[in-house]
């Protein structure tokens, strides 16, 4: 059940070196392309990176919190074209979420690496660095990179009682 998947899911940043099988790559690809988008405009493009040299480059695009990508056998770079949709951030996030959940469903682990609004060590934007590394056209922005692979260890699920339930309101906003 999908709900059980949500109950046990955690971000995984340490991966086994085993590659992701081609059949699983196909399923992840189809899942990405099935992501709905505002007004049916689909402003995204995806780059599936398995080349270890390119992955090492991706891992330094954002030094803070991006280093874990180095050990990921698969990185999905999620790009959006603001010229096609003004809500490309939402559309890219829908696809990123779907690929993470599809990976979890296949027994893979994953973690999000935020790129939009983040910087490279030199102070230039992480997006500018990735544009160079991946040959992206100027019309594309990078939303995030999802690192995927077989988990090296499992992380305990969050308990139901730890959830911030005061953040749910009924019918109108209730001040606490």
């Amino acid at each position: 059940m999908f709900i059980d998947l949500l109950r046990k899911r955690r971000s995984i940043r340490n991966f086994d070196q085993r590659p992701v099988e081609p059949e699983k790559l196909d399923i992840l690809t189809e899942a990405l392309l099935r992501s709905p988008a505002s007004k049916g405009r689909y402003p995204w493009e995806f780059i599936l990176v398995t080349d270890p040299d390119i992955i090492s480059q991706l891992a330094v695009a954002k030094p803070k919190g991006g280093g874990f990508l180095e050990k990921a056998p698969l990185c999905v770079v999620i790009c959006g074209n603001p010229g096609i949709s003004d809500v490309w951030i939402e559309d890219c996030t829908v696809a990123a979420t779907i690929v993470q959940l599809a990976a979890e469903d296949l027994g893979l682990g994953s973690c999000w690496c935020q790129i939009r609004r983040r910087q490279h060590a030199s102070g230039v934007s992480s997006t500018a660095v990735l544009r160079q590394q991946l040959g992206l056209p100027d019309c594309l922005e990078v939303a995030c990179i999802i690192g995927i692979g077989y988990p090296l260890a499992t992380i305990a699920p969050r308990s139901r009682t730890s959830l911030p339930s005061r953040k749910v309101h009924k019918n109108v906003y209730q001040k606490s």
Binding site: R34, E45, F46, G135
Partner: peptide, 12 residues
Amino acid sequence: LQYDKIFLNFFG
């Protein structure tokens, strides 16, 4: 599905 939006390792 828009398979033309998927690239491997490098844009294009």
